[in-house]
Design a protein around this nucleic acid. Structure first.
Length: 263
DNA sequence: GTTGAGCGTT
């Protein structure tokens, strides 16, 4: 039974994390456990998998209790053929929580917290970002990349990259479309700022205000605007502007200082 | 049903 990673990290404080790469996508912790356990005491084995599909990513983390055993496993299992694939075993560079790792050993840099850390603000480390930046797999397929890259210089790599960019660039339009949203948000923030200034008439037009707070909907405004009416009214005119002037809120840039009619 | 650089979970 594989109870590894079922309930998060069991007890990692003096364990050595080994990174196993080049493993098959079907290799599980159970398959690596006997392999690594033979060379030392395996504390825990964790294989990151995709959230969308739930399949293994192609590498696993094996935590040993002692460094000598871990090193032995690295020397012995490194290059071993597992499931028809040559795996690569090496000491993990990064920790699960970005902790300090020395030679693969996880050293807890956190204070002992004898009861003095609970008075601090429990600032959330991670909200929902997880590791989106790296969460998405680099690329589904990349036939022969290292070898070519190793053999050739960056020139080849650049060439390939450009070629790929031309073929498809999912992040290209994304990058461009992002500026607009931000601008909109900023403008909204500014609008509010003006309103505030007009109301108080004492606030300085300083821009050191926290845009994050302003980003939140003060009245329950949806963070995301409704879809473009252009889509659903495809073929018909958009009678949204002069059709229903009744419930039309001044979403336009109308910094009316007084909104008593609606508010 | 595929894929193959890299660094992790409750």
């Amino acid at each position: 039974m594989s109870h590894f990673g079922r309930s998060g990290p069991p007890d990692i404080k003096d364990t050595y994390s080994l990174l196993v790469l080049n493993i098959t996508f079907r290799t599980t912790a159970d398959d690596l456990f006997p392999l690594f356990d033979k060379y030392g005491k395996v504390v825990d084995i964790f294989i990151p998998r995709d959230r969308r599909t739930g399949e293994s990513r192609g590498f696993a983390f094996v935590r040993y209790k002692y460094a000598d055993e871990a090193q032995k496993a690295v020397d012995k299992l490194d290059g071993r053929n597992v499931d028809g694939r040559e795996i690569m075993v090496q000491f993990a560079k990064y920790g699960p929580n970005a902790e300090r790792i020395h030679k693969g050993r996880i050293v807890e840099a956190l204070p002992k917290s004898r009861g003095r850390s609970r008075s601090r603000s429990p600032k959330p480390k991670y909200r929902d970002d997880y590791r989106d930046k790296d969460y998405r797999r680099r690329s589904r397929s990349r036939s022969k990349g290292r070898y070519e890259r190793d053999r050739n210089h960056e020139r080849e790599r650049d060439y390939r990259r450009r070629s790929r960019s031309r073929s498809m660039s999912p992040d290209y339009h994304k990058s461009h479309g992002r500026g607009r949203g931000y601008d909109d948000e900023r403008e909204r923030s500014r609008s509010r700022s003006i309103d505030s200034a007009s109301d108080r008439r004492s606030l300085s037009p300083r821009r050191s205000m926290s845009p994050r707070k302003s980003s939140l909907s003060p009245r329950g405004s949806p963070p995301y605007r409704d879809e473009s009416p252009n889509k659903r009214s495809s073929g018909k005119r958009s009678p949204s502007r002069s059709a229903s002037p009744k419930g039309r809120r001044a979403i336009s840039r109308s910094p009316s200082p007084r909104n008593s009619d609606e508010d």
